[in-house]
Design a protein around this nucleic acid. Sequence first.
DNA 1: GACGTTCCTTTCACGGGGTGGAAGTCAGGT
DNA 2: ACCTGACTTCCACCCCGTGAAAGGAACGTC
Lengths: 248, 248
Amino acid sequence: MTDGPRRSVVRRLLSVLDTFDATTPTQSLTEIAARTELPLPTAHRLLAELTAGGWLERLPDGRYRVGLRLWKLGTLAPSYRNLRELALPYMQDLYHATHENIQLAVLDGRTALCVENINSVRSVPTRTRIGGRLPLHATGVGKVLLAAAGTELLASLAEKGLRRFTRYTIIEPGRLSRTLATVRDEQVAFSREEMTLGACSVASPVTRPDGGVVAAVSIVAHSSVDVDRLAYAVRTAASGISRQTGML
Amino acid sequence: MTDGPRRSVVRRLLSVLDTFDATTPTQSLTEIAARTELPLPTAHRLLAELTAGGWLERLPDGRYRVGLRLWKLGTLAPSYRNLRELALPYMQDLYHATHENIQLAVLDGRTALCVENINSVRSVPTRTRIGGRLPLHATGVGKVLLAAAGTELLASLAEKGLRRFTRYTIIEPGRLSRTLATVRDEQVAFSREEMTLGACSVASPVTRPDGGVVAAVSIVAHSSVDVDRLAYAVRTAASGISRQTGML
DNA sequence: GACGTTCCTTTCACGGGGTGGAAGTCAGGT
DNA sequence: ACCTGACTTCCACCCCGTGAAAGGAACGTC
């Protein structure tokens, strides 16, 4: 029946957990079995064990969703645990000064991962959610993180082709590389409608005392806003957070 | 060797994950093996699989910690996913109006679980962390959640004895029960140095359109602050959040 | 009320993969 | 050089996870 190579119990279990994402926060047994390509009884047994332990929850209608226990565990993840607590006050200051959207992201593989955000009702509505992903080459935070990463990352991204989101997206590796050099130089990255038409952003790196970049903060505003004028604000906030990282 | 009854692979794996908590965010192989009571090679294999999938991370010194993937997954947990995003703006309003600590908690088993907080530098320093637990009988948020839960919960807590934290902690089940009636009536709960000497709190319930209580917001202030004057502020914020829960 | 459908749950004999004692490796200390 | 403690690898045994098949449960349809 199952053609694929046999996975270990552990990998099966983890692939069950992996089926939960932002687009499918709740799932039925059949859906999970289908997505994991596991026989129905097998999926059922794994889900039963996860539910019994409180890792997943079962809704009255039989559907499964992520439980509090997993949330609590995730809370201990490094980029979250302290960074978020240190950064939030500074992000709030930025928000009160500008009334625009504020984001905090870390590097996760080949994308930027949003770990905290403050959405403004007055500013451009962003699709970004906590736990959501952002492209490295078309956003402010992405560029900051990409600039700080080794050149191999850029090379590997370029190899697979830089996706064009709007007509302003930089998809030429050479031009992107030059942009990143400026970012490293000035500690600020811009994105002018490169990800979404009508939205611009300014980002700046959060660093450890040794200079390593751990995250990026940014302001995401409507394209009519002069983001250059916001650059110093982001840099100031980023410096504030960076100063605190020494205490981790 | 191992005396205990044999656990299934799944339960073994989950007990490995379970060893991670706020007090031990990073652990060595030997520590994990000891805490889970698993043979060292077994623990090693499980950890290797978890690390390979990005569920755990390995530090240069060989210690393990929770990885980004688990954090992302936890992000999907119900009480967190939307509640937090809805509530944060209102919590910020409260913070700016009062400059005290603000907390948001949900019921989790026999304790209150803090899902969001804003710590004020000007107010009492709180030990509470996101993902941290608070007693139901000695805190504002706890009382709100306990009042909304069935009477069985209070009975079962009383059976095991209500822990005394300070000389003000209510440990008489009858008196607590009467207090909870008032909480239900007035939609506000107070804690006056019942958890920590020098700290008081006011809390109010966040409800769904059908009236069910999903969370509690509170202000935690120095005991010199007249918390009665803050009651309307918390109730207002709680109402605001409650109105939004209809959109979930 | 019988019948079909869909989704979930339970059973159980089989055999492959997890197990863990033992041995090997590595780093730091004396 | 020798020891100690912590991690990693090996591999033969055997236990426990597996999944096809059958049993329920909850609907909707004729």
